[in-house]
C-alpha cells in the first residue's frame, strides 16, 4: 500500500512537468507585454526596453522556461512583477482562504447531496424523489455565478443578513460555500440515488435481510458501504472541478484567495504569479486525486488487492 502511494506520488512529477510546459507556453504566447502594462501608458520606449531586460523577457523562451523550471525545483517560483514579493509567499498568503472555501464547499456538497440522494432512492417514484431530482438537476444546470448573484440579491439586499464580500467572519463564508458546493452537491445526489437503487437490489442485501439483522445494520453496514464507492470517486473528481469554481466564487464575493490572485495576475500579465498559481492548483488536484484513490482502496477491498498486486 505504502509503495503504491509512493509510486503514485512519483507519478505526479511528469504531470506537473506537463502542466508547467502548457501554462508557460500559454502565458508567454498570449498577446500583451507585461513591461508595458506595469509601466502604464505614459512610459517611454526606453523604459519599457530596460524593464524587459531587467525581467529577462528578452531571452529566448526555452531559456526562460529552463530558468523557471530550475528555480521551481528549488521551491522558488520567482517574484511577482507587480508587488515584487516572492510568488511562493503570495500563494501561501492566499491559500488558507481558498482551502477553507474548498473544504467547506465539499462538506456542503456531501452533507446535502448524500442524504438527498439516499432519500430519493428510498422514496423512489414518489413526489419526494421528484423533488430531490429537481433540486439536483437545478443545482447542476444553473450557472454558479448566477446563483451567487441571486443569493446576494436575496440575503445581502432584500433580507440583509449576510455580507456580500470580504472574509471577516463565518457569515462571509455561507454564500460562497453554497455557490461553490452546489454543482458537486447535485452530482453527488444523482450519483448516490442511482448507486443506492442498484445496491438495494443486490443479492447480498437480500442475504443480509435473510439473516434477520436489523434494518439499520442492513442499511449502514451492507448498503451504504457499497453505495459510497462510486460516490467517493465522483466527489474526488469534482473536487478538482470545484477548484475551478473557486476562481469564479472568489471573484464574485471578493474573497482574497488563490483564485482571485490568479485572475488579477492574468489581467496584469504577472507571468510568475500565473505560472506559480496554476502549478500550485495542479499540485493540489493531483494530491487530492491521490488521497481519493487511497480512500477508495480503504472502502473496497477488491481495489486494495489490485493495488497490492500492482506494486
Amino acid at each position: 500500500m505504502l509503495r503504491y502511494f509512493l509510486r503514485r506520488l512519483l507519478l505526479l512529477i511528469p504531470v506537473l512537468l506537463g502542466v508547467s510546459v502548457v501554462i508557460f507556453s500559454i502565458v508567454h504566447l498570449a498577446p500583451g507585454d507585461p513591461a508595458e502594462v506595469m509601466l502604464g501608458p505614459s512610459a517611454t520606449q526606453e523604459d519599457i526596453a530596460n524593464l524587459r531586460e531587467q525581467l529577462g523577457l528578452n531571452r529566448p523562451l526555452y531559456v526562460q522556461y529552463g530558468a523557471f523550471l530550475g528555480n521551481a525545483l528549488r521551491g522558488d517560483l520567482g517574484r511577482s512583477m507587480r508587488s515584487n514579493a516572492p510568488v511562493v509567499e503570495e500563494i501561501m498568503d492566499r491559500f488558507p482562504a481558498t482551502l477553507t472555501l474548498a473544504v467547506l464547499g465539499m462538506a456542503f456538497a456531501i452533507g446535502i447531496g448524500l442524504p438527498l440522494g439516499l432519500l430519493a432512492a428510498l422514496k423512489q417514484n414518489t413526489w419526494i424523489d421528484a423533488l430531490c431530482s429537481f433540486v439536483a438537476l437545478a443545482g447542476f444546470s444553473i450557472p454558479n455565478f448566477w446563483i451567487a448573484l441571486m443569493l446576494m440579491l436575496l440575503f445581502s439586499i432584500y433580507i440583509p443578513i449576510l455580507p456580500s464580500s470580504g472574509i471577516d467572519s463565518w457569515k462571509n463564508l455561507v454564500m460562497p460555500t453554497i455557490v461553490l458546493g452546489v454543482q458537486t452537491m447535485a452530482v453527488i445526489a444523482r450519483m448516490t440515488r442511482s448507486s443506492m437503487l442498484e445496491v438495494i437490489r443486490q443479492d447480498y442485501v437480500r442475504t443480509a435481510r435473510a439473516k434477520g439483522i436489523s434494518d439499520r445494520l442492513v442499511l449502514t453496514r451492507h448498503i451504504l458501504s457499497n453505495v459510497m464507492i462510486p460516490v467517493v470517486t465522483i466527489a474526488g473528481l469534482y473536487f478538482g472541478h470545484s477548484l475551478g469554481g473557486v476562481v469564479v466564487t472568489e471573484t464574485v464575493f471578493s474573497i482574497p484567495g488563490l483564485g482571485r490572485l490568479i485572475v488579477d495576475a492574468i489581467r496584469s500579465h504577472d507571468y510568475p504569479v500565473v505560472q506559480g498559481g496554476v502549478l500550485f492548483f495542479a499540485l493540489c488536484v493531483g494530491v487530492v486525486n491521490l488521497l481519493v484513490d487511497m480512500l477508495y482502496a480503504a472502502l473496497d477491498p477488491r481495489i486494495k488487492a489490485q493495488y497490492r498486486a500492482a506494486r
Binding site: Q202, D203, Y204, R206, T207, H222
Partner: peptide, 20 residues
C-alpha cells in the same frame, strides 16, 4: 429469519457482500 429458518442462495458470487 436467520435463526430458526435460514436460506442458502443460488449464486455465491453475488450473495456475499464484497466489502465485508
Amino acid at each position: 429469519r436467520g435463526n430458526r429458518i435460514s436460506m442458502i442462495f443460488q449464486d455465491p458470487m453475488t450473495s456475499l457482500n464484497p466489502v465485508l
